[in-house]
Amino acid sequence: MDGFLQLSLTPILIGILSAIACALPGNFLILRRQALIGDAISHVVLPGIVVAFLATGVIAALPMLVGAAGAALVAVILIETIKRVGRIEPGAAMGVVFTSMFAAGVLLLEQTDTSAVHLDVEHALMGNLESLIWFDATGWGSLVDPVALAGLPPELPRIAVVAAVIAVLAFVFWRPLKLSTFDEGFAATVGVPTRTIGLALVAASAVAAVAAFDAVGSIIVIAMFICPPAAARLMTNRLEAQVGWSVVFATLSAIVGYVLAGYGPLWFGAQNAVSAAGMIAAVSGVILAIACLAAPHRRRIGAAQGQG
């Protein structure tokens, strides 16, 4: 049991909180036809973090969050500029911006001596959930032992705070968020600051992406933004229920994914565990696949497109 506490509890918790923090804004991103903003944001997190590291010389939570959020903001502004000035369709504008910023991040990282800190390209891409262990846990008593708790990996409180903040924001701004997602024009006429809401959604997604980044890397984060909300959309026709389902699916993906990655290979007689982050993405994909094949509301209703 000590083994579970030391090795598995914190990664599972971090996985669950990361998945939920991403799935919450993900619900609105997919309804706004901005699913790929999640893609773009998660790619630009890397240059943001590298620049923050170069500026401060340390890997600390606050500069990283600021750097990543700043990079996301720069990306959104660039995408908007290219769309508007160059009259380029949004998908292509996004493709130009996030690949270039990601390339810059990789190059900076390769040129920087980061051997002293935990930051390299491979981890940035794939994450390293398994390394987030709790050495100081000696038994269930450790859960109330301040000394042992102080030894928790700092990623856990960080993602917990981020997930909590995002959940509170989603609750408080539920009405304007829902209203401006459904009917932006009407929302503007009743005084909803639609542009600010849109930007705030992107900013919240960026914060979720950077907090989850340590654990699962920049690409698997995309699975957490998109798969649970997409599967949830197919389960229900009410936004409130959709968000609920997405949290359930996110939690399920994290737990099942981590367990399969850690213990699955042992069942097949193999010695080593496989990537937990990768497995979480794979499980979220399986859940989405099942939803696509069997969920009650998987198909569009014909009348929705009718003109009568």
Binding site: A35, M126, I219, I220, A223, G278
Partner: peptide
């Protein structure tokens, strides 16, 4: 696009 991209990448990492 987003789900295929991320899920396949996750599988690849596994």
């Amino acid at each position: 696009i987003g789900s295929v991209l991320s899920v396949f990448f996750g599988l690849g990492v596994v």
